[in-house]
Design a binder for these strands. Structure first.
Length: 102
DNA sequence: GCCTTGACCCGCG
DNA sequence: TCGCGGGCCAAGG
């Protein structure tokens, strides 16, 4: 049921995102590397923006290398707080504590 | 088939 | 952590 490159990067990205445990956050670069596209971190973000459309994936646990949350998406901050992730600022999480390590 | 855009990353200061 | 500049790849127009 694997089919690996099922349709495109979306499946791989969503798969990794779905493995992120609660109370943790992962960076786009981290995910990009896990799917074998370290250079392509931007694609992760682009696909993740559509992840809402796909549904069921904790895209709110994905932040950038600086721990900044997605612009125009304040709800992400609340979602993280609900899982126990303390934010340093309105749009920043404490990576040194919550950055997910595989 | 080129050009622009994108929830980015890295190094430097 | 932020700002600037350069780079990488993919999708849409």
């Amino acid at each position: 049921m694997k089919r690996v490159l099922d349709e495109d990067l979306a499946y791989e990205i969503l798969s990794v995102v779905g493995e992120i445990p609660e109370g943790c956050v992962a960076t786009y670069g981290q995910i990009a590397k896990l799917i074998g596209r370290e250079k392509n971190a931007r694609l992760v973000g682009k696909v993740l923006s559509r992840a809402e459309y796909y549904g069921k994936y904790p895209c709110h646990r994905v932040v950038n290398h600086a721990g900044r949350l997605a612009p125009g998406w304040n709800e992400q901050a609340d979602l993280l707080r609900e899982e126990g992730v303390f934010l340093k600022d309105e749009n920043h999480v404490d990576l040194k504590k919550f950055q997910w390590e595989d």
